[in-house]
Design a protein around this nucleic acid. Structure first.
Ligand SMILES: [Mn+2]
Ligand SMILES: [Mn+2]
Ligand SMILES: [Zn+2]
Ligand SMILES: [Zn+2]
Lengths: 121, 121
DNA sequence: GAGCTAATTGAAAAACATTTTCGATTAGCG
DNA sequence: CGCTAATCGAAAATGTTTTTCAATTAGCTC
């Protein structure tokens, strides 16, 4: 973070701290964990962290959510209670990407699985 | 559409016509293809069509996009020019879903592949 | 440790996106 | 041809994100 000539401000530390407390939070949830940081700064800091690759932004249909960009993983989303859980084992068959005949250089992918979690069945 | 007690209004037909012209359009793009339909009605009609399962809403990070809900397929998104292309062959290994030890009933999934299209290399 | 400066912050305003309201219109039915 | 519940749309309300700009400050220099 310092490397890029960015200042380590208390606001940025607070947002990072909020992100560390829980994955997949909305901006408002993050904001709730660092009320001393101005709204504009939360927006700006999240944009910056995403830009720097420190944070990943998720679009799961109910507005943006943010998570610390750790290892490659995927999400299971319960359509009943909205719970989001993670899993690491990538069920993609690398042989089949890119698809046959497609002239495309694959850089990354995102996979979300929808259904019902154990608690909701 | 009639089945559910909904009226087949010219506005709804126009929005469906716009959707048929191209996949993955934003609301504003759809609106551009049926200027005779009021903005509020475009919002309402898209919500209704999504509700009815006729249209699918995509969240690819740059705002909502809509497509006629045809067969199951996935998307390749060019990070350079933004082009979105489709492919049908699902590269998921069904053996590996749900992941081991996960107590989750899989209903559906969405997969997006990011990279560079042929034209952008 | 004090001083300097470019980076950062935050309150207010602006811009943009979506939903609600409610009176006017109309598709579909008899 | 009426009737009526469904639909439409302009305006207002609400919600979200970005821009502005004056005040503050982190990190560097001396
Ligand atoms: Mn995650
Ligand atoms: Mn598609
Ligand atoms: Zn659940
Ligand atoms: Zn491209």
């Amino acid at each position: 973070m310092r490397g890029g000539g960015y200042k380590a401000t208390p606001q940025r530390m607070a947002v990072l701290g909020a992100l560390a407390e829980e994955q997949h939070q909305s901006l408002e949830e993050i904001r709730g964990r660092c009320l001393e940081v101005g709204l504009v700064t939360v927006y700006r800091t999240l944009s910056l962290l995403v830009e720097l690759g420190i944070v990943r932004r998720l679009d799961l249909g109910d507005g943006a959510r943010y998570e610390l960009a750790e290892d490659h993983h995927h999400h299971m989303i319960c359509e009943s209670c909205g719970d989001i859980s993670e899993f690491e084992e990538c069920p993609l068959d690398p042989e089949r990407l890119p698809p046959e005949n497609a002239d495309f250089e694959v850089r990354s992918h995102s996979l979300e699985v929808y259904g019902r979690c154990g608690a909701c069945r």
